[in-house]
Amino acid sequence: MTTGAAEPAHDSEQATLPERAAALVELLRRNATRTDQDRCVAPENIAALDAAGLFSLTVPQRLGGHQACIRTLVQVGSELGRGCGSTAWTTSLINISGWLIGLYPQRTQREVYAQDPGTRACAVLPPHGTGRTSDAGTIVSGRWGFASGCLHARWALLGMTLTGEHGERRDQALALVPMHQLTIEDTWHVAGMRGTGSNTLVADGVVVPAHRILSVTHALQGTYPTEFKDEALYRAAFVPTLALSLAGPLLGLARGAMELVLASLATGRGISHTHLAREAPSTQMQLAEAASLIDTATLHLLRAADDVDNWAASGQCMPLVNRTRARMDIGTVARCAREALDLLLNVHGARSFAEDSPLQRIWRDLETGTRHAMVNPAIATEMYGRALLGIEDQITPLI
Protein backbone atom coordinates (compact mmCIF):
# COMPACT_ATOMS: atom_id res chain seq x y z
CA MET A 1 0.00 0.00 0.00
CA THR A 2 1.24 3.46 -0.83
CA THR A 3 0.23 6.74 0.69
CA GLY A 4 -0.76 9.80 -1.25
CA ALA A 5 0.26 13.42 -0.89
CA ALA A 6 -0.33 15.10 2.45
CA GLU A 7 -3.90 16.23 2.98
CA PRO A 8 -4.86 19.71 4.24
CA ALA A 9 -5.66 18.08 7.59
CA HIS A 10 -1.97 17.66 8.36
CA ASP A 11 -0.87 21.29 8.14
CA SER A 12 0.04 23.29 11.23
CA GLU A 13 -3.36 24.99 11.57
CA GLN A 14 -5.24 21.70 11.54
CA ALA A 15 -2.77 20.16 13.97
CA THR A 16 -4.03 22.62 16.58
CA LEU A 17 -7.60 21.28 16.48
CA PRO A 18 -7.08 18.78 19.35
CA GLU A 19 -5.46 21.62 21.32
CA ARG A 20 -8.56 23.75 20.76
CA ALA A 21 -10.64 20.88 22.10
CA ALA A 22 -8.36 20.46 25.14
CA ALA A 23 -8.76 24.16 25.92
CA LEU A 24 -12.52 23.62 26.36
CA VAL A 25 -12.30 20.69 28.79
CA GLU A 26 -12.76 22.74 31.98
CA LEU A 27 -15.79 24.55 30.54
CA LEU A 28 -17.33 21.20 29.60
CA ARG A 29 -16.63 19.82 33.09
CA ARG A 30 -18.32 22.79 34.73
CA ASN A 31 -21.40 22.31 32.57
CA ALA A 32 -21.46 18.49 32.59
CA THR A 33 -24.00 18.12 35.40
CA ARG A 34 -26.37 20.60 33.76
CA THR A 35 -25.96 18.89 30.39
CA ASP A 36 -26.84 15.57 32.03
CA GLN A 37 -29.82 16.93 33.96
CA ASP A 38 -31.22 18.97 31.07
CA ARG A 39 -30.77 16.04 28.64
CA CYS A 40 -29.23 18.50 26.21
CA VAL A 41 -25.73 19.90 25.69
CA ALA A 42 -25.40 23.22 27.53
CA PRO A 43 -25.76 26.23 25.22
CA GLU A 44 -22.40 27.60 26.42
CA ASN A 45 -20.72 24.40 25.23
CA ILE A 46 -22.32 24.65 21.80
CA ALA A 47 -21.28 28.30 21.47
CA ALA A 48 -17.68 27.55 22.51
CA LEU A 49 -17.39 24.58 20.16
CA ASP A 50 -18.80 26.67 17.34
CA ALA A 51 -16.38 29.53 18.04
CA ALA A 52 -13.47 27.07 18.04
CA GLY A 53 -14.53 25.67 14.67
CA LEU A 54 -14.99 22.20 16.11
CA PHE A 55 -18.27 21.54 14.31
CA SER A 56 -16.63 21.84 10.89
CA LEU A 57 -13.81 19.30 11.24
CA THR A 58 -15.04 17.23 8.31
CA VAL A 59 -16.52 19.98 6.13
CA PRO A 60 -14.65 20.35 2.80
CA GLN A 61 -11.94 23.01 2.91
CA ARG A 62 -13.29 24.52 -0.32
CA LEU A 63 -16.53 25.26 1.58
CA GLY A 64 -14.82 26.80 4.60
CA GLY A 65 -14.28 23.68 6.73
CA HIS A 66 -11.13 22.04 8.08
CA GLN A 67 -11.33 18.81 6.04
CA ALA A 68 -9.46 17.18 8.91
CA CYS A 69 -8.31 13.57 8.78
CA ILE A 70 -9.97 10.80 10.78
CA ARG A 71 -7.06 10.76 13.23
CA THR A 72 -7.83 14.39 14.10
CA LEU A 73 -11.52 13.58 14.46
CA VAL A 74 -10.86 10.87 17.07
CA GLN A 75 -8.28 13.01 18.87
CA VAL A 76 -10.75 15.88 19.21
CA GLY A 77 -13.42 13.47 20.44
CA SER A 78 -11.03 12.05 23.02
CA GLU A 79 -10.08 15.50 24.33
CA LEU A 80 -13.69 16.64 24.64
CA GLY A 81 -14.64 13.37 26.33
CA ARG A 82 -12.34 14.24 29.22
CA GLY A 83 -14.75 17.04 30.10
CA CYS A 84 -18.19 15.73 29.16
CA GLY A 85 -19.13 12.48 27.46
CA SER A 86 -22.44 13.77 26.10
CA THR A 87 -20.85 16.88 24.60
CA ALA A 88 -18.04 14.85 23.04
CA TRP A 89 -20.45 12.28 21.61
CA THR A 90 -22.72 14.96 20.17
CA THR A 91 -19.81 16.87 18.64
CA SER A 92 -18.30 13.77 17.11
CA LEU A 93 -21.58 12.62 15.59
CA ILE A 94 -22.30 16.08 14.20
CA ASN A 95 -18.87 15.96 12.57
CA ILE A 96 -19.39 12.48 11.15
CA SER A 97 -22.67 13.74 9.70
CA GLY A 98 -20.61 16.47 8.04
CA TRP A 99 -18.36 13.78 6.60
CA LEU A 100 -21.40 11.99 5.20
CA ILE A 101 -22.56 15.19 3.53
CA GLY A 102 -19.09 15.45 1.95
CA LEU A 103 -19.85 12.19 0.12
CA TYR A 104 -22.83 13.71 -1.66
CA PRO A 105 -22.66 15.61 -4.99
CA GLN A 106 -21.34 19.17 -4.94
CA ARG A 107 -24.84 20.57 -5.42
CA THR A 108 -25.95 18.98 -2.15
CA GLN A 109 -22.87 20.11 -0.25
CA ARG A 110 -23.43 23.70 -1.35
CA GLU A 111 -27.05 23.61 -0.24
CA VAL A 112 -25.88 22.78 3.27
CA TYR A 113 -22.66 24.76 3.65
CA ALA A 114 -22.70 27.67 1.18
CA GLN A 115 -23.93 30.14 3.78
CA ASP A 116 -22.29 28.65 6.88
CA PRO A 117 -19.51 26.01 7.05
CA GLY A 118 -20.49 25.48 10.68
CA THR A 119 -23.97 24.25 9.76
CA ARG A 120 -24.73 21.18 11.86
CA ALA A 121 -26.38 17.91 10.88
CA CYS A 122 -27.31 14.66 12.62
CA ALA A 123 -27.64 11.15 11.23
CA VAL A 124 -29.39 7.84 11.85
CA LEU A 125 -28.00 5.08 9.63
CA PRO A 126 -30.41 2.13 10.21
CA PRO A 127 -33.18 2.03 7.57
CA HIS A 128 -36.07 2.84 9.89
CA GLY A 129 -37.93 4.70 7.15
CA THR A 130 -39.10 4.12 3.61
CA GLY A 131 -38.56 6.15 0.48
CA ARG A 132 -40.93 5.71 -2.45
CA THR A 133 -39.84 7.06 -5.81
CA SER A 134 -42.16 9.45 -7.60
CA ASP A 135 -41.99 12.07 -10.34
CA ALA A 136 -41.54 14.79 -7.69
CA GLY A 137 -38.69 12.98 -5.91
CA THR A 138 -38.43 10.39 -3.17
CA ILE A 139 -41.31 10.47 -0.69
CA VAL A 140 -39.84 9.71 2.73
CA SER A 141 -41.72 8.56 5.83
CA GLY A 142 -40.62 6.90 9.05
CA ARG A 143 -39.44 7.19 12.62
CA TRP A 144 -35.74 7.34 13.49
CA GLY A 145 -34.72 6.87 17.13
CA PHE A 146 -31.34 7.61 18.71
CA ALA A 147 -30.77 10.76 16.63
CA SER A 148 -27.82 12.12 18.62
CA GLY A 149 -27.30 15.85 18.08
CA CYS A 150 -30.75 16.45 16.61
CA LEU A 151 -31.43 19.26 19.11
CA HIS A 152 -28.57 21.27 17.60
CA ALA A 153 -28.92 20.36 13.91
CA ARG A 154 -30.38 22.04 10.84
CA TRP A 155 -30.22 18.91 8.66
CA ALA A 156 -30.73 15.20 9.24
CA LEU A 157 -29.48 12.15 7.34
CA LEU A 158 -32.07 9.39 7.63
CA GLY A 159 -31.62 5.73 6.76
CA MET A 160 -34.36 4.18 4.67
CA THR A 161 -35.35 1.43 2.30
CA LEU A 162 -35.88 2.75 -1.21
CA THR A 163 -38.84 1.20 -3.01
CA GLY A 164 -40.29 1.48 -6.49
CA GLU A 165 -43.76 2.69 -7.38
CA HIS A 166 -45.18 -0.76 -6.67
CA GLY A 167 -43.37 -1.28 -3.37
CA GLU A 168 -40.50 -3.39 -4.67
CA ARG A 169 -37.21 -2.92 -2.79
CA ARG A 170 -34.57 -1.07 -4.80
CA ASP A 171 -31.84 0.02 -2.40
CA GLN A 172 -30.87 1.13 1.09
CA ALA A 173 -30.13 4.84 1.25
CA LEU A 174 -29.64 7.96 3.31
CA ALA A 175 -31.97 10.90 2.71
CA LEU A 176 -30.72 14.38 3.61
CA VAL A 177 -33.67 16.37 4.98
CA PRO A 178 -33.94 19.86 6.53
CA MET A 179 -34.87 19.64 10.20
CA HIS A 180 -37.79 22.00 9.74
CA GLN A 181 -39.51 19.27 7.69
CA LEU A 182 -39.25 16.81 10.59
CA THR A 183 -40.79 16.44 14.02
CA ILE A 184 -38.72 15.69 17.12
CA GLU A 185 -40.34 13.38 19.68
CA ASP A 186 -38.88 13.53 23.18
CA THR A 187 -38.01 9.85 23.70
CA TRP A 188 -34.44 9.96 25.08
CA HIS A 189 -34.98 9.00 28.73
CA VAL A 190 -31.93 6.94 29.61
CA ALA A 191 -29.33 6.30 32.32
CA GLY A 192 -26.22 7.43 30.43
CA MET A 193 -25.24 9.83 27.64
CA ARG A 194 -28.37 11.70 28.70
CA GLY A 195 -27.12 15.03 27.37
CA THR A 196 -26.89 13.83 23.77
CA GLY A 197 -30.62 14.42 23.36
CA SER A 198 -30.81 11.38 21.07
CA ASN A 199 -34.52 11.70 20.48
CA THR A 200 -36.73 10.34 17.71
CA LEU A 201 -37.18 12.08 14.35
CA VAL A 202 -40.43 11.65 12.43
CA ALA A 203 -41.08 12.25 8.72
CA ASP A 204 -44.48 11.94 7.08
CA GLY A 205 -44.40 12.15 3.31
CA VAL A 206 -41.41 14.50 2.99
CA VAL A 207 -40.32 14.90 -0.64
CA VAL A 208 -36.54 14.65 -1.08
CA PRO A 209 -34.89 15.47 -4.44
CA ALA A 210 -32.62 12.89 -6.07
CA HIS A 211 -29.38 14.78 -5.35
CA ARG A 212 -30.06 14.44 -1.61
CA ILE A 213 -30.31 10.63 -1.70
CA LEU A 214 -27.13 8.63 -1.02
CA SER A 215 -26.97 4.89 -1.78
CA VAL A 216 -25.73 3.02 1.30
CA THR A 217 -25.25 -0.09 -0.83
CA HIS A 218 -22.75 1.74 -3.03
CA ALA A 219 -21.15 3.45 -0.04
CA LEU A 220 -20.43 0.08 1.58
CA GLN A 221 -18.50 -0.76 -1.59
CA GLY A 222 -16.50 2.48 -1.40
CA THR A 223 -18.39 4.27 -4.17
CA TYR A 224 -19.47 7.83 -3.32
CA PRO A 225 -21.16 10.40 -5.62
CA THR A 226 -18.91 13.37 -4.76
CA GLU A 227 -17.27 14.81 -7.86
CA PHE A 228 -14.08 15.67 -5.93
CA LYS A 229 -12.28 12.36 -6.23
CA ASP A 230 -8.94 13.94 -5.23
CA GLU A 231 -10.16 14.67 -1.68
CA ALA A 232 -8.86 11.71 0.32
CA LEU A 233 -11.09 12.35 3.34
CA TYR A 234 -14.15 11.55 1.25
CA ARG A 235 -12.65 8.28 0.07
CA ALA A 236 -12.41 6.91 3.64
CA ALA A 237 -13.98 3.49 4.25
CA PHE A 238 -17.65 3.95 5.09
CA VAL A 239 -18.35 1.78 8.17
CA PRO A 240 -14.94 2.02 9.87
CA THR A 241 -15.15 5.81 9.64
CA LEU A 242 -18.64 5.88 11.12
CA ALA A 243 -17.60 3.56 13.94
CA LEU A 244 -14.43 5.52 14.72
CA SER A 245 -16.50 8.65 15.36
CA LEU A 246 -17.96 6.88 18.41
CA ALA A 247 -14.68 5.68 19.87
CA GLY A 248 -12.90 8.96 20.60
CA PRO A 249 -15.42 10.15 23.22
CA LEU A 250 -15.33 6.74 24.94
CA LEU A 251 -11.57 6.93 25.34
CA GLY A 252 -11.95 10.50 26.59
CA LEU A 253 -14.32 9.39 29.34
CA ALA A 254 -11.73 6.96 30.69
CA ARG A 255 -9.01 9.61 30.47
CA GLY A 256 -11.20 12.08 32.34
CA ALA A 257 -11.87 9.54 35.09
CA MET A 258 -8.14 8.95 35.52
CA GLU A 259 -7.54 12.69 35.91
CA LEU A 260 -10.28 12.99 38.54
CA VAL A 261 -9.05 10.03 40.57
CA LEU A 262 -5.44 11.23 40.49
CA ALA A 263 -6.57 14.69 41.62
CA SER A 264 -8.48 13.13 44.51
CA LEU A 265 -5.49 11.02 45.58
CA ALA A 266 -3.28 14.11 45.54
CA THR A 267 -5.33 15.51 48.44
CA GLY A 268 -4.13 12.69 50.72
CA ARG A 269 -7.47 10.93 50.91
CA GLY A 270 -7.37 7.72 52.93
CA ILE A 271 -8.97 4.31 52.52
CA SER A 272 -11.46 3.58 55.31
CA HIS A 273 -9.94 1.48 58.10
CA THR A 274 -6.53 1.50 56.36
CA HIS A 275 -3.81 4.03 55.49
CA LEU A 276 -3.41 6.72 52.84
CA ALA A 277 -4.71 5.52 49.50
CA ARG A 278 -1.73 6.81 47.51
CA GLU A 279 0.65 4.77 49.70
CA ALA A 280 -1.29 1.53 49.33
CA PRO A 281 0.24 -1.01 46.90
CA SER A 282 -3.29 -1.98 45.82
CA THR A 283 -3.92 1.62 44.76
CA GLN A 284 -0.62 1.88 42.92
CA MET A 285 -1.13 -1.40 41.07
CA GLN A 286 -4.71 -0.64 40.06
CA LEU A 287 -3.76 2.84 38.84
CA ALA A 288 -0.91 1.41 36.79
CA GLU A 289 -3.17 -1.19 35.26
CA ALA A 290 -5.85 1.40 34.47
CA ALA A 291 -3.26 3.68 32.86
CA SER A 292 -1.96 0.79 30.76
CA LEU A 293 -5.48 -0.06 29.61
CA ILE A 294 -6.02 3.58 28.58
CA ASP A 295 -2.71 3.50 26.71
CA THR A 296 -3.78 0.30 24.97
CA ALA A 297 -7.08 1.87 23.97
CA THR A 298 -5.25 4.93 22.63
CA LEU A 299 -2.87 2.86 20.52
CA HIS A 300 -5.68 0.80 19.00
CA LEU A 301 -7.78 3.89 18.32
CA LEU A 302 -4.97 5.72 16.53
CA ARG A 303 -3.94 2.62 14.58
CA ALA A 304 -7.48 2.22 13.25
CA ALA A 305 -7.75 5.91 12.38
CA ASP A 306 -4.38 5.92 10.64
CA ASP A 307 -5.28 2.77 8.73
CA VAL A 308 -8.47 4.40 7.43
CA ASP A 309 -6.60 7.60 6.55
CA ASN A 310 -3.77 5.78 4.78
CA TRP A 311 -6.03 3.60 2.65
CA ALA A 312 -8.08 6.67 1.72
CA ALA A 313 -4.92 8.53 0.73
CA SER A 314 -3.79 5.56 -1.39
CA GLY A 315 -6.95 5.74 -3.51
CA GLN A 316 -7.53 2.01 -2.97
CA CYS A 317 -10.53 0.36 -1.34
CA MET A 318 -9.73 -0.70 2.21
CA PRO A 319 -9.65 -4.53 2.24
CA LEU A 320 -12.23 -6.42 4.25
CA VAL A 321 -9.71 -7.85 6.72
CA ASN A 322 -8.43 -4.32 7.44
CA ARG A 323 -11.96 -3.04 7.88
CA THR A 324 -12.79 -5.79 10.36
CA ARG A 325 -9.50 -5.16 12.15
CA ALA A 326 -10.52 -1.52 12.52
CA ARG A 327 -13.80 -2.69 14.07
CA MET A 328 -11.77 -4.96 16.37
CA ASP A 329 -9.60 -1.99 17.35
CA ILE A 330 -12.71 0.03 18.17
CA GLY A 331 -14.13 -2.83 20.22
CA THR A 332 -10.82 -2.94 22.07
CA VAL A 333 -11.17 0.77 22.87
CA ALA A 334 -14.60 0.11 24.37
CA ARG A 335 -13.45 -2.89 26.40
CA CYS A 336 -10.26 -1.29 27.71
CA ALA A 337 -12.02 1.96 28.60
CA ARG A 338 -14.63 0.06 30.63
CA GLU A 339 -12.02 -2.07 32.37
CA ALA A 340 -9.90 0.97 33.18
CA LEU A 341 -12.87 2.80 34.67
CA ASP A 342 -13.78 -0.24 36.76
CA LEU A 343 -10.30 -0.18 38.33
CA LEU A 344 -10.50 3.56 38.93
CA LEU A 345 -13.84 3.16 40.68
CA ASN A 346 -12.25 0.53 42.90
CA VAL A 347 -9.53 2.98 43.83
CA HIS A 348 -11.92 5.84 44.51
CA GLY A 349 -14.37 3.65 46.39
CA ALA A 350 -18.09 3.86 47.08
CA ARG A 351 -17.99 7.67 47.10
CA SER A 352 -17.70 7.40 43.28
CA PHE A 353 -21.45 6.75 43.18
CA ALA A 354 -22.58 9.78 45.15
CA GLU A 355 -24.99 11.85 43.10
CA ASP A 356 -22.65 14.84 43.17
CA SER A 357 -19.65 12.78 41.99
CA PRO A 358 -18.65 13.26 38.34
CA LEU A 359 -17.38 9.66 38.36
CA GLN A 360 -20.89 8.22 38.57
CA ARG A 361 -21.89 10.26 35.51
CA ILE A 362 -18.78 9.07 33.64
CA TRP A 363 -19.63 5.50 34.65
CA ARG A 364 -23.20 5.87 33.32
CA ASP A 365 -22.00 7.49 30.10
CA LEU A 366 -19.32 4.90 29.41
CA GLU A 367 -21.55 1.94 30.22
CA THR A 368 -24.16 3.32 27.82
CA GLY A 369 -21.89 4.47 25.01
CA THR A 370 -19.86 1.27 24.85
CA ARG A 371 -23.04 -0.74 24.24
CA HIS A 372 -23.58 0.90 20.85
CA ALA A 373 -23.74 -1.81 18.18
CA MET A 374 -20.94 -0.20 16.15
CA VAL A 375 -18.44 -0.52 19.02
CA ASN A 376 -19.67 -3.79 20.58
CA PRO A 377 -16.51 -5.82 21.39
CA ALA A 378 -18.15 -9.24 21.01
CA ILE A 379 -19.54 -8.45 17.56
CA ALA A 380 -16.22 -6.97 16.46
CA THR A 381 -14.33 -10.05 17.66
CA GLU A 382 -16.56 -12.42 15.71
CA MET A 383 -16.30 -10.29 12.56
CA TYR A 384 -12.52 -10.13 12.73
CA GLY A 385 -12.17 -13.84 13.42
CA ARG A 386 -14.34 -14.72 10.44
CA ALA A 387 -12.34 -12.39 8.19
CA LEU A 388 -9.04 -13.89 9.34
CA LEU A 389 -10.35 -17.35 8.46
CA GLY A 390 -11.61 -16.20 5.07
CA ILE A 391 -15.25 -16.93 5.95
CA GLU A 392 -17.34 -14.83 3.56
CA ASP A 393 -20.62 -15.10 5.47
CA GLN A 394 -20.46 -12.28 8.03
CA ILE A 395 -22.86 -11.46 10.86
CA THR A 396 -23.53 -7.97 9.51
CA PRO A 397 -23.26 -6.20 6.16
CA LEU A 398 -21.92 -3.13 7.98
CA ILE A 399 -18.19 -3.74 7.57
Rank of each mutant, 00 (worst) to 15 (best):
A6C: 00
D230G: 05
A22H: 11
L233F: 05
L27D: 07
S148D: 01
T370Y: 05
R364C: 04
A114Q: 15
A313M: 07
T368S: 15
D135M: 13
R82M: 02
V190R: 13
A42I: 07
R194N: 05
A121L: 04
E44H: 10
D11N: 15
R235T: 07
L176F: 09
H128D: 10
M383G: 03
W155D: 06
R364A: 07
L366W: 05
L345I: 14
V76G: 01
Q14Y: 14
L293V: 02
Y104A: 09
D116H: 15
L293Y: 00
D295K: 13
T16M: 13
G102L: 03
G385Q: 06
G315Q: 13
R327H: 08
P178H: 02
Q316G: 03
R71C: 07
L103R: 01
D306P: 06
W311L: 03
M193P: 00
T223S: 09
A312H: 08
A147H: 06
A88H: 01
G77S: 03
I46A: 09
V177E: 07
T223I: 13
Q109I: 04
H189M: 11
M1Y: 10
Q115E: 13
L28R: 02
T72G: 03
L174A: 08
G77H: 03
A280L: 13
A5I: 12
R30S: 14
G129M: 02
R29G: 06
A257Q: 03
E13R: 00
T35H: 12
R29F: 07
G331Y: 00
A313S: 11
V177Q: 05
G252Y: 06
L162W: 03
T58G: 08
R120L: 00
S357G: 10
H189Q: 15
V347Q: 15
G248F: 10
T381H: 15
L24K: 10
A52F: 09
